[in-house]
């Protein structure tokens, strides 16, 4: 089973990203998928998480993920507030929306680090909502690249399940751009 925690802030589409990944993974042929928001009230701008579980067999576990295999960070400003690495398995993968490279980030421990400037891509493609760049969908492209769990084709189909065709097309353009430029630093270690 692959357990994924999405980190971001209320209003950034964290929950929707977790849902689109579940759709994409199911289309990819994984028989067991679940996606869940953080249970309880949510506030715009406050740090929050959502989760996706992906498995070949139907999933019977509905408890919270303790240690994820993969962490996706939509908003790098939460990294200093939330203990993201405390909920990521040693040796796991962290995918970060950042213009910086893995070496420029202070990451302790043994993780595969994938970086992509999702906000920059969204701005360049004018994929904006209420004046803010859309970063949840480009991060799905980075996820596909960094993990290999879902194909771009399945992400595109997953998008279409969750939004009208024109919006899905605009988002998919950012997904594939992010896929192309995601930089993966395997088992990044820093003293």
């Amino acid at each position: 089973m692959h357990e994924v925690i999405w980190h971001g802030r209320g209003g950034q589409g964290v929950v929707l990203a977790a849902q689109i990944l579940a759709e994409s993974a199911y289309l990819q042929g994984f028989g067991g998928v679940t996606s869940a928001p953080t249970f309880g009230p949510e506030r715009r701008g406050a740090p929050l998480t959502a989760s996706t579980r992906i498995s070949d067999a139907p999933i019977r576990t509905v408890s919270q993920i303790e240690q994820a295999d993969i962490a996706v960070v939509l908003d790098p400003t939460v990294m200093t507030i939330v203990d993201i690495f405390g909920r990521l398995k040693n040796g796991g993968t962290i995918i970060i929306n950042t213009p910086h490279s893995a070496d420029d980030l202070s990451i302790d421990g043994c993780f595969t680090v994938a970086t992509v400037d999702a906000s920059g891509i969204a701005r360049k493609q004018r994929l904006m909502v209420a004046g803010a760049p859309v970063m949840n969908t480009p991060m799905l492209g980075a996820f596909a690249r960094a993990t290999g769990l879902v194909s771009l084709n399945c992400v595109e189909k997953g998008l279409k399940k969750k939004m009208p065709a024109d919006r899905a097309a605009a988002n998919f353009s950012a997904v594939s751009a992010a896929f192309d430029v995601t930089v993966i630093t395997p088992k990044h270690e820093r003293d």
Partner: peptide, 11 residues
């Protein structure tokens, strides 16, 4: 179960 099932998506 509230949230655990009511708010969790699955096939």
């Amino acid at each position: 179960d509230g949230f655990v099932l009511s708010h969790t998506m699955m096939p």
